[in-house]
């Protein structure tokens, strides 16, 4: 057992890093769905915006910590703007059900991804890790890339912050109340539109910043938007839509599936992701943290 742990320690650690990176994407997706009932299919394209921002600002080789922080800033601003815009264009469709909003955001995703390909070309690009986080460090006798440890740290802090914000703070209480009964919150004098736009912008901010964070690991290239979107959707569905905790554990699970699962069952590597999702939804049709109320939500189709 100890020997097995030792042999797979790096893999397990890596699964955590990958999972937490996906968490930054998934939690935004989950919050936007939970708060606004919008399945934001442009989330992957926004991640890619962040990744290209990192490529442009930090570059493929070299790159200081300052440049990395600047890239985060640029991505943050873009993310907030995109969120406000998306909230604006999806809200008129609120009564038309998920399918129309999903179609709209998918259209936006195609447009954004194609503009990125026109701007940056179709070549594959990598992003350098910021100075000071390059190279590897020793973890219990194994070499491990320092930047991935950094991603683990950032992901954990982020998870704690989002949890406190949504589940424990006053702002979070308003948000949760808005979800439960929009009219009631409006009646006590809160501008629910602002709350909803705020949540949307926060979610997209996490997506673009996730793109910067993931840049040194996944690079920037056409098609990456679909890959991360699918992973994000799988996590959100496994975890239970609208739940921060669900997104967190879903992300960690998918991280391990992608790494440890592949180590243990290499022949079935390509079936693992969707196999896991199918299995979980078969056993718990509303996801790990889901409740029956959420699944029975009306207007679930066009």
């Amino acid at each position: 057992m100890i020997a097995w742990l030792d042999a797979n320690l790096v893999s397990i650690l890596n699964g955590v890093a990958f999972g937490l990176l996906l968490f930054t994407l998934a939690v935004g997706l989950s919050l936007i769905f939970g708060m606004m009932d919008v399945l934001n299919l442009s989330h992957g394209a926004l991640y890619l915006v962040g990744a290209y921002a990192a490529y442009r600002v930090v570059g493929e080789a070299g790159g200081s910590l300052g440049a990395f922080l600047l890239a985060l800033g640029v991505a943050g601003v873009l993310g907030l703007a995109a969120g406000a815009l998306l909230a604006g264009i999806t809200q008129p469709l609120a009564r038309r059900g998920h399918l129309h909003q999903a179609l709209l955001t998918l259209g936006v995703a195609l447009v954004v991804a194609d503009l990125l390909s026109a701007l940056f070309g179709d070549e594959v690009h990598s992003v350098a890790a910021p100075a000071g986080l390059r190279g590897s460090v020793r973890v219990l006798g194994h070499g491990y890339p320092a930047y991935r440890l950094f991603v683990i740290g950032v992901g954990l802090v982020l998870a704690a912050l989002v949890y406190l914000l949504v589940e424990r703070s006053r702002a979070g209480a308003v948000i949760r109340a808005t979800v439960a009964d929009r009219d009631m919150v409006q009646a006590i004098g809160v501008d629910t539109r602002k709350v909803l736009v705020g949540v949307f912008a926060f979610g997209t901010l996490l997506a673009t910043c996730g793109g910067v964070l993931g840049g040194p690991i996944l690079g920037a290239q056409p098609g990456l938007d679909d890959t991360v979107l699918i992973l994000g959707l799988v996590i959100v569905v496994i975890g239970g839509l609208g739940s921060v905790k669900g997104a967190f554990f879903g992300a960690l699970l998918i991280g391990q599936i992608q790494v440890l699962g592949v180590t243990l069952l290499p022949e079935y590597a390509s079936f693992l992701l969707f196999g896991t999702m199918a299995l979980i939804l078969t056993l718990r049709p509303a996801g790990l943290a889901g409740t029956a109320a959420r699944t029975a939500a009306p207007g679930s189709s066009g």
Binding site: H98, F274, T295, S300
Partner: peptide, 13 residues
């Protein structure tokens, strides 16, 4: 056995 978005995702799987 599932509904809405869960049905969408399960069929995707």
């Amino acid at each position: 056995r599932t509904h809405g978005t869960f049905f969408l995702m399960l069929t995707l799987a």
